Simulated scan of single mutants.
Amino acid sequence: MTDKLLPLDTNPQGIVPSTSAPVTIEAWTPPMQDADAVVRCDQSPAVEYLTGLSPGSTETMGKSLDRLCVIIASEGVIANEAEAKKVLGEKPGLRFQWWRLRRPQTRWIHAQITSKERGLAPNTAKLWLSALRGVLKECSLMKGYTQDGRERPLMSADDFHTATAWRAVVGERESPGLFLDEKMRAKLFVACDQRRSPLRERDAAILAIGLGCGLRRAEIAGLQMSNLTNNKLTFVGKRNKQRTVPLLAWALIRVQTWLRVRGDAPGSMFFNVKAIPGKLLMTPRPLSADSVSTVVYELGEAAGVDLSAHDLRRTFITGCFMQNMDPHHIQLLAGHDDIKTTMRYDMRPRAAMEKSLADAIDKLE
């Protein structure tokens, strides 16, 4: 490898640091090439891996693979990552020869992303390692070709299992999310009521479904009129899982108010609203997940609350815990596969601590 970083598609070693590199990364020297070594693959393992994911996960995991490529190309030196990113170009993870990785290389990657110097949150490190495991699993299922044209597996089952036998990532961070108390929620609805129609009714309904049903932003954007029956929302959410969430009375009122403005025509429940001189006009184009995030952000800004769309979901789940609901029932309402995920949304300890601290400060004053 030359001193200058090479783009992935022109680097014959697949971004492997040179043997003149520090001893800590000498393990990057690729395995000895023999007659059975794969030298070519007509498909990208990363593409095969990412196409099997949901649209939201495809973007997240694709970016994770790209970041791993940058770390590899910079030979683990954080200061060189900006240069490596420029040289690699867009989406390097799609062109990287992931099947060349073996246990020494994956241990090196693990050490890099879990190091204190890099400062990644444990969940971020877990996410990147999950992306790495996923693309290596795809390598173990795909075929490549040797120098003389024979067909061989990209990675043997043994190589896959040893390469992904890394230590579990330990540690945790406080959730960066926000629990919206009663006063904050009231401020958001006041901000809604100050908007012009039909934004006023539409955005209040979005808030009501987020706070009263705990739907993800993509699930809110994807709601159809047919999903609302008998005062309940029945829809297919993340991981192609169908679930039913009842609308509480206060949330149902907000939704019904919006539907009177929207009309009862079939199709998407939430439309885009276009500003034209003198008025706002509904368009038949449905909202996107990003548009839902924008709505929530703008309402938060107007109410003086710095929040994201996911904070609505977090508030709903925490509110369920505050009502002493069975955690397994909350898991079903939230659509989580693992109850541990649901428990991470429980912000009661922080909310109680913040309230106690506020009460103590009030008494001191």
Rank of each mutant, 00 (worst) to 15 (best):
V255Y: 08
R239I: 00
N240Q: 14
K241T: 08
I253D: 14
V261S: 11
V255R: 07
G237L: 05
G237F: 02
I253H: 07
L252C: 02
K241Q: 14
W258M: 11
L247W: 07
A249M: 07
W250H: 13
R262S: 09
V261F: 08
G263T: 11
A265S: 14
K238G: 02
P246G: 03
R260T: 10
Q242C: 00
R243A: 04
N240H: 11
P246S: 05
V261N: 01
L247S: 03
L247E: 09
R260K: 15
K238N: 02
P246V: 08
I253A: 12
A251G: 14
R239S: 10
P246E: 11
G237C: 08
G263Q: 13
N240T: 09
G237Y: 04
A249R: 11
Q256W: 00
V236A: 00
Q242F: 00
L248F: 04
I253S: 08
R239G: 15
R260D: 14
A251Y: 07
R262V: 12
L259I: 15
L259Y: 00
V245N: 05
V261G: 00
R239H: 09
T257P: 00
L252N: 09
Q256S: 03
L247F: 07
Q256D: 10
R243K: 12
N240C: 01
L259A: 01
W250Q: 13
Q256Y: 00
V261D: 12
K238S: 06
Q242T: 14
N240A: 13
L247P: 03
N240I: 01
L252A: 14
V261A: 08
Q256K: 14
L252E: 14
R254E: 15
L248R: 13
R243Y: 02
I253M: 09
G237S: 00
A265F: 02
Q256I: 01
D264H: 09
T257C: 12
W250I: 13
L248N: 12
W258E: 12
T244L: 03
R239M: 09
V255A: 09
R260V: 11
T244W: 04
R260P: 00
L247Q: 07
Q242P: 02
W258V: 11
V245R: 09
P246T: 07
L259K: 10
Q242E: 15
R254W: 08
G237H: 05
N240P: 01
T244V: 11
A249N: 06
K238V: 05
V255Q: 09
G263N: 13
L252W: 04
I253Y: 03
Q256E: 14
V245Y: 06
K241H: 08
K238A: 06
V236T: 15
V261P: 04
R239V: 01
V255S: 09
T257S: 15
R243W: 07
R239L: 06
Q242D: 00
T257L: 13
D264T: 13
R254M: 12
L247A: 06
K241E: 03
R260W: 02
R239F: 10
L259S: 01
N240D: 15
N240R: 14
W250A: 13
V261H: 11
L259H: 03
D264Q: 12
